[in-house]
Design a protein around this nucleic acid. Structure first.
Lengths: 250, 250
DNA sequence: CGAGGAATTGAGAAACTTCAACCGTGGTGG
DNA sequence: CCACCACGGTTGAAGTTTCTCAATTCCTCG
C-alpha cells in the first residue's frame, strides 16, 4: 500500500522519484499508538516530527474546566507538529482516536530534506499553509453556520481530504468517532449533534452504516454546507470545479 | 517613532543591530491605505508581503450569502500574508478598518533576509506560528465560550498584543471598530454584542471612553475569560515588570 | 446474559437572533 | 448657525437555536 504521506504531497505538486524514495525511507520506522493515547501533550517539546500513516487522531485543546475543543482531525498523511520545531513547546494535545500507525521523523531529517530538496520543501510548506487555511475555514464554520451546515461542512472536508489519500470508496469513508467527539469539534453538545445528524439523515444528505459515512450526492451536500474545497489547495480539483450554484434550501 | 515590526519581533527574541537596521530599511517605503479599503483580496496573488506599521486591519472571509467572518485583527507590526509566497492565491481578504500605514516588502527581500539572517528567519517563523496558534485559540473561543467570555477573551488578547508593541497606556488601548465588526469576529449578532458589552461594563470588567477600551483590572478580566497568554509565545510574560527599554510616546 | 458505553428522545431552560423602534452624535448643506 | 441626515449604539419583545438534564434504548464485548 503506497504511503499516505507520499500520496498527499503528490496531491499538491509532483515529486521526483528520489524525493519519493527519501520520504518512504524516512517513514520506514513506524510505531503504533493505541486508541485514546496521547501522541503529544501540551507543554511537550517534541524532538521529532510525527506523521500519521494510518488511523485517526485529533488536535485538541483542553480548558481548565474540562471542556475541550477539537481543532483538527488528522488523517493518514497528516503531520502532527511540523512547525513546532521553531516554537518552544506544544500549546495543544494530539490524541489518537483510533489506533494510529505513526512515523517519527527527526528534525535533522526534516531540515536536510527541506534544504536539499526544493520540491519537497515546497510541499511541506504547503502542508503547513493548508493546515492554517483549514483552521480559518473551521473558524468560519463555527462562527457563521448552524449545526447542520457545520457538520455537513466537516463531512465535505473529510470526504475531500480522504479522497486525496485514496481512503474513500465511492462516496463513503470510515469515521470512527463518537457524537461526543463530533460535538467537541463543532462546538456543539452531543445531544444537539445527534439531532442534527438525524436531520441530515432525514434530508437524505448523508447516511451511516456502522461507523462509515456515506454521502449519496456529494454536490448536494457541498451545496447545502456552502463548501468550497479551494481552501484545501489541492492540485486536481476534487472533481467538480464547476462554479457551484447558490445558497441552500430548507 | 520606533518601528512596530521591530518591537514585535524583539518581543520574541533579541535581534542584532544589523537585523534591526535591515528591517527598518526594508520598511522604509510606506503607503497609507484608507479606512474600508481592501489591502488584499481573496483570489489575489500578491507579489509583496505587506506589514501593518500603523492602524488596524482585519483578515476576513466573505460567504456567498454576504455574511462574513473576521479571522484576525491585524495591528501594528503584523504581517498580512507572510505565508502566501508559497500558495497560489489568497483565500481571504485583508481589509483596513482604520487608515493603515503599510510597508510592502518584496518576496526577494524576505527571502534574502531569511536566508542570510538566522535570527530574523526564526523571528519570522515565529510570527507565522503565533498567527496559527492565535487562530487555534479563536477556534476555542468560538467553540467553547459564551458571548461575554468570548469578547472578554478578545480584549485580553488585544491588550496583550498591543502592549507588546507599546500601544497601550495603563490598561487602555484604542479599538476603533463597530459593534457590527466585533460581532463578525465573534460569531455573534451586533445586538447581542451590544448587550454583552453592557454586561461586561456593568460587571466593572471593562469600560469605554469613546473608542478606547479600558481594563481596570486585567487579571480579573483574564480570569473571567479564562485567558492564558502563553499561546502568544511572548518572550517576556505580558506583565510588564521585565527590563524592556521603554522608548515611546502616545 | 450482563455491563458499559454510546445513541436517541423528550422536556424545559438558557443563549442568541431577528425585527423594529428609538436615541445621540457628528457631519453636511442651505 | 441651524436643520437634517446617516450611521452606530441602545433597548424591547418575540422567535429560534442550542443546551442541560434525565430517561430509555441500542450495541458491543466479555
Amino acid at each position: 500500500m503506497p504511503n499516505a504521506l507520499v500520496r498527499k504531497l503528490e496531491g499538491y505538486a509532483p515529486l521526483e522519484v528520489s524525493d519519493r524514495e527519501r520520504l518512504l525511507n524516512v517513514c520506514e520506522k513506524t510505531a503504533v499508538v493505541e486508541a485514546d493515547r496521547y501522541i503529544t501533550r501540551a507543554g511537550d517539546s517534541p524532538k521529532d516530527v510525527v506523521v500519521i500513516l494510518e488511523g485517526l487522531a485529533v488536535r485538541s485543546k483542553l480548558l481548565r474546566d474540562g471542556r475541550r475543543q477539537i481543532l483538527a482531525f488528522l488523517v493518514a498523511g497528516d503531520f502532527c507538529d511540523l512547525h513546532v520545531a521553531v516554537l518552544d513547546r506544544m500549546d495543544h494535545d494530539i490524541l489518537a482516536i483510533m489506533p494510529c500507525t505513526v512515523a517519527r521523523i527527526s528534525r535533522n531529517a526534516v531540515q536536510e530534506m527541506t534544504e536539499t530538496r526544493p520540491r519537497l520543501a515546497k510541499a511541506l510548506w504547503w502542508c503547513t499553509l493548508v493546515d492554517e487555511a483549514t483552521l480559518r475555514e473551521w473558524l468560519v464554520n463555527l462562527g457563521q453556520r448552524d449545526a447542520e451546515q457545520r457538520i455537513a461542512h466537516l463531512f465535505c472536508e473529510l470526504q475531500t481530504r480522504l479522497q486525496a489519500v485514496e481512503l474513500t470508496t465511492d462516496g463513503s469513508f470510515g469515521l470512527p468517532i463518537t457524537q461526543d467527539e463530533l460535538g467537541d469539534a463543532m462546538g456543539l453538545s452531543a445531544v444537539h449533534v445527534n439531532r442534527s445528524l438525524k436531520a441530515l439523515r432525514d434530508a437524505g444528505l448523508v447516511s451511516f452504516r456502522g461507523r462509515t459515512i456515506h454521502i449519496p450526492d456529494i454536490e448536494r451536500l457541498q451545496n447545502f454546507a456552502d463548501f468550497d474545497p479551494s481552501y484545501l489547495h489541492l492540485r486536481h480539483g476534487p472533481e467538480a470545479e464547476s462554479p457551484v450554484p447558490l445558497l441552500r434550501q430548507a
